[in-house]
Design a protein around this nucleic acid. Sequence first.
DNA 1: TTGAAAGCGCTAACAA
DNA 2: TTGTTAGCGCTTTCAA
Lengths: 352, 352
Amino acid sequence: MTKSKESPESAGSEQRRLQMVDIARLAGVSVSTVSRALNGSELVNAETRQRVAELARSLNYSINFGARNLRLQENKTVAVVVPYDARSRQHISDPFFLSIVGAIADALTDRGYDMLLSRVDAERLDQAAHWVDSGKAIGVILIGQWRQHDQLNDMAARKLPLVVWGGEMPQQLYASVGGDNVLGGTLATRHLLQLGRRRIAFFGDAKLPEVWLRRQGYAQALREVGLEVDAALELAAPFEPGVATDVVRQFCQSRRDFDAVFCCSDVLALLASQALRAAGRSVPTDVAVVGYDDMPLAAYCDPPLTTVHQPVAEAGVALVEALLAQLAGERPTLRTMPVHLMRRASAPDVIA
Amino acid sequence: MTKSKESPESAGSEQRRLQMVDIARLAGVSVSTVSRALNGSELVNAETRQRVAELARSLNYSINFGARNLRLQENKTVAVVVPYDARSRQHISDPFFLSIVGAIADALTDRGYDMLLSRVDAERLDQAAHWVDSGKAIGVILIGQWRQHDQLNDMAARKLPLVVWGGEMPQQLYASVGGDNVLGGTLATRHLLQLGRRRIAFFGDAKLPEVWLRRQGYAQALREVGLEVDAALELAAPFEPGVATDVVRQFCQSRRDFDAVFCCSDVLALLASQALRAAGRSVPTDVAVVGYDDMPLAAYCDPPLTTVHQPVAEAGVALVEALLAQLAGERPTLRTMPVHLMRRASAPDVIA
DNA sequence: TTGAAAGCGCTAACAA
DNA sequence: TTGTTAGCGCTTTCAA
């Protein structure tokens, strides 16, 4: 058995956490009554309810959620999982992902849910399921689908409550929320074309669904003016700055036949700008740069970054709503949110 | 009572979560044996243990931690709390705070703890205590002490397991981990002085302990060369970009009698650089800029930011260790970690 | 309007 | 080596 209820505070200082039974004793009622009073049940005398509630408050009592959840078979915790690249041991560091996490935190808090934050190997997104399997969380919000479309489909097939931030894919079974990546790619590219740029490079790893879609938008905008994608102007730069730096530098040094670059993240855009300057080419005069995400710092860079704005706060809400809808029994949904171009100096309407 | 054990799966698809009793029935042993087997107890036949473990694995069973924790009176969840400014409704957005959160996530994961992430009104840091009071977490890691030194002391007096990222204060009862702010201020200022700068502005809200300490280092470095702090060169800029932008712009436009500025965050340094350029002054030629934190993007700005590097990963570990030490019964400790200057182009050794 | 008692899923003391 | 049983702190049915 557990240690018998030792005589009054054996150790003295060792103060046991207050629980309902204590309130009950002090109020001279039963535990059931305390429970009812604290939950605002109609089944308890108004005066008693008042008295118990006040006592609890004055003693700074707060309920043991573990016990409550066990009894009620309920849980208000959501796991938010940020993938990391296992090979480079990169941290969660892209400012955009972190902004999304902040937005989700807000949305969850507003709805009375708690947020368990963790990281997972980007190759093993399926491991995120353990949060639900172990009962620690009721559902999972995953930041980015990476290359694991199939793993995600498997998870959804297992009826795991799951929402992924990312792009819409063919044959997708899991719920997702994402920006309109095709539109984003189109807006960015059209803008550069309107500036008179014709040799527009594309930086981003098209094996990732979001990047793949942005590339479609890019290709479409080129086609609108009768241009084709030039494979020589594409660079499969990853999102992790550590890994991307070298390839970006190399590209900027070796290839000079481009007058603009569309980068699939703001961080990449910063890297590119730096590499271009290092190669003796000015931004935006020689090469105009457009980023993606509109991270909080984008406006404060030099030159301030023209970039595709993603609606972060709304995305947080949408992700949470999509998860709660599944928990309420609805089927997983795909949602695409509008994006727009933030025009700043890195790809200015009029070249200074 | 709870709903009686309805006849075989009333709803059909509605699959109840697997629990020990299921494994026990299938393995033909008692629940205790399953429990023992899964916990690797010596008290169970090796063969049985093997069989049960395999069965559990094949069925994808995972334990209900809520129940386990309740029974064991244990909990491996830590609350990480990021304050926000209630007036401006600012998000967690400073990249440095977010990096720290990432580092803490790693450190906790490595030690088998889960992380509950939440935000709290910077005026009411004491509300972070509810995570522990409610049993949802065993301790709190707070990112920044802000102006609430007294609230934090009260929490510590209540024996709340708590560690704060921030500066050491007189009469401090709560545990803290922080960078060596005085040293950081000194290094930054000395560097600027060595470049021949003499009119060095200070951007940061000295009501915050960390900034206060950095200002001491700044003042000390000035004194070393026979200079005094000039109140006219101080700007109480807050950390939130939204709020800071205006005051920084105004300062940079109105006051021209400074040739360097020491900013208490990298974001502030970016803001300042932009405001200076807008006012027609070049960085670093006219005004050298030094930031603080060495956020991941600092190296990719233009010009790359000279800044005081804070050891983020080590800080995450130190915060977690400090909390675990308290949980093991040790007294709260104050810890200061070394910082160093990252020399980059915003305050170059040789002016180009 | 209240209290007694059962039980959420698990662990461990005790008995066999 | 295994099973039986009590109980972690809470909610709720049932009886009073």
